[in-house]
Design a protein around this nucleic acid. Structure first.
Length: 487
RNA sequence: CGGGGCGUAGCUCAGCUUGGCUUAGAGCGCGUGGUUUGGGACCACGAGGUCGCGGGUUCGAAUCCCGCCGCCCCGACCA
């Protein structure tokens, strides 16, 4: 049905996933009214109310989790003096190509150019050095919700926009051990959030040196699989070592009276998560949302002909709506007179509302309501009395079902491979994840990228040691890593 | 940055090759009135456009020429 060339479908047409995955993604984003390309500003997007509501839900839960672990929110300047960026050699090299620079302010050329922050390690490092003087000031655990700008070559709504929203956590510790612990703890927060709230299973692991954050000692990541088999880096957590501590002179006096550099971490997730959410669960009819992140849980659609029917049907709808709201659900009773029920069904379906309830004269007579879940299956009926509780428990079922479905998809698209020739063949096809050995040589990693465009997404945490051949050179390797093409 | 596409009504586009037959059009959307309402309703009337910008050619330019700007898509980078 998504392919009908009915003129009234213009602007709301969704390309089939199997036909053109990239176009399908854009269509779902547009039809679900999540965001639109800003057009007047290259690479930027307008996050529309329905999309922003999802972001607010993501924010609320992550913020809760961060604070529960002792982090405090703060806010740092949008502009960073150019000299700050230059203080950490690897950092400047990594970010230079994608910086936006302000050269004029108030009509006058600036004495020092200002960088629109691409990330805040440098300016936060500067302030940490002012705030930290004793081991008693540590650990310092700060989080910032902010926008950042990276002049990417090819923007894509949510997945890679010039400006995006994110949170960046920055912490300083007295020991490397404690910093590593923090890095892994926050990676774990991301992993569990993705699994529990987004219903998106991810593989948590370590980046190879060539893929790590510019300026970090070690970077960790969570990698999700999209429905086209590609990987999405959904969040990162970095062990910064003393690199920024040394660059910004962040020192403290230890208990023993010695002056030491702090050990820092940084970690972030962004509005890219929304893109991941879309690509993980949605289908040819539009957006599919896990209930825990859905701005609207239930759409109640009244069906009536006469005015008399309208009154009694709407009364029943509002009563059910109230009962559902009392159970903590967000409900819309779609009492618009100007469109027919069918149009309403399509609209809420496209927007990913997890469940739809229909109430009409027939239902009133039979004492039940009709329920349709967005994630599939036929419409079914539940008695009116038990409907609120049944629909509440349905939310958990949908959440769980989406997670299981995504996990099964990932598992059925993950292959173990020992031969480079076979690997090249896999990457030419419908893709997916490949578990293959890696000897640790950057040359082998580079060869994979050159020939297939795939990369090592991560070396999974708690990876079982396994003697296997390096998938590229055949030399002995100690463990398998995740190879995939990425967004 | 390389390759491709596009800029005409709120949206999607036709018209451009062969300049005048257009007083710039269509569908969708929007407004008003009526009939409708269990999977995208229909009829009637109506509002809405300096044809991306700047030059040029011509009696005459959305259409031809030159220059500029912008956006989207496909490749090399990232959260």
């Amino acid at each position: 049905m998504a392919e009908e060339s009915n003129p009234r479908e213009q602007g709301s047409k969704i390309t089939l996933r199997a036909k053109d995955y990239a176009q399908w993604y854009q269509d779902v984003v547009r039809c679900a009214d999540l965001a639109e390309p800003a057009e007047v500003v290259r690479g930027c997007m307008v996050i529309k109310p329905h999309g922003y509501a999802i972001w607010e839900k993501i924010q609320a839960e992550l913020d809760r989790r961060f604070k529960a672990l002792g982090h405090q929110n703060a806010y740092f300047p949008l502009f960073i003096p150019e000299s700050f960026i230059r203080k950490e050699a690897e950092h400047v090299e990594g970010f230079s190509p994608e910086l936006a620079v302000v050269t004029i302010g108030g009509g006058k050329e600036l004495a020092e150019r200002l960088i629109v922050r691409p990330t805040s390690e440098t300016i936060i490092g500067h302030f940490f050095s002012k705030w930290i003087s004793s081991y008693r000031d540590l650990p310092l655990k700060i989080n910032q919700w902010a926008n950042v700008v990276r002049w990417e070559m090819r923007p894509r709504v949510f997945l890679r926009t010039t400006e995006f929203l994110w949170q960046e956590g920055h912490t300083a510790h007295a020991s490397h051990e404690e910093a590593v612990e923090e890095t892994l703890q926050m990676l774990n927060v991301y992993e569990s959030f993705a699994r529990e709230f987004m219903a998106m299973p991810v593989i948590a692991g370590r980046k190879t040196p060539s893929e790590k954050f510019a300026g970090a000692l070690t970077s960790y990541t969570i990698e999700a699989m999209m429905q086209d088999g590609r990987a999405l880096q959904a969040g990162t957590s970095h062990d910064l070592g003393q690199n920024f501590g040394k660059a910004f002179d962040v020192k403290y006096l230890s208990k023993e009276g010695k002056l030491e550099y702090v050990w820092q971490t940084s970690w972030g997730v962004s509005t890219r998560l929304i893109g991941g959410l879309v690509m993980c669960h949605s289908d040819d009819n539009g957006l599919v949302l896990p209930p825990k992140l859905a701005p609207i849980h239930v759409a109640v659609v009244p069906i009536y002909k006469s005015d008399g029917e309208r009154t009694s049907v709407l009364e029943a709808c509002n009563k059910l709506g109230g009962a559902l709201r009392n159970r903590g659900l967000s409900v819309i009773v779609d009492d618009r007179d100007e469109c027919k029920p069918g149009a309403k069904f399509f609209e809420w379906e496209r927007k990913g509302v997890p469940a739809r309830v229909e109430i009409g004269p027939k239902d009133l007579a039979k004492g039940h309501v009709a329920v349709k879940r967005r994630d599939g299956g036929d419409r079914f009926f539940v008695p009116r009395d038990g409907a609120p509780d049944r629909i509440l428990s349905l939310m958990d079922e949908i959440q769980d079902s989406l997670r299981k479905r995504a996990l099964e998809f990932r598992e059925s698209h993950t292959r173990t491979c020992d031969s480079f020739a076979e690997f090249v063949e896999i990457m030419a096809g419908p893709e997916g994840f490949v578990r293959g050995g890696w000897c640790g040589d950057a040359a082998c990693e580079a060869k994979v990228k050159e020939t297939t465009k795939a990369t090592i997404r991560c070396i999974p945490l708690n990876n079982p040691k396994e003697s296997c051949p390096c998938m590229v050179c055949g030399k002995p390797a100690e463990e398998r890593v995740i190879y995939a093409k990425a967004y």
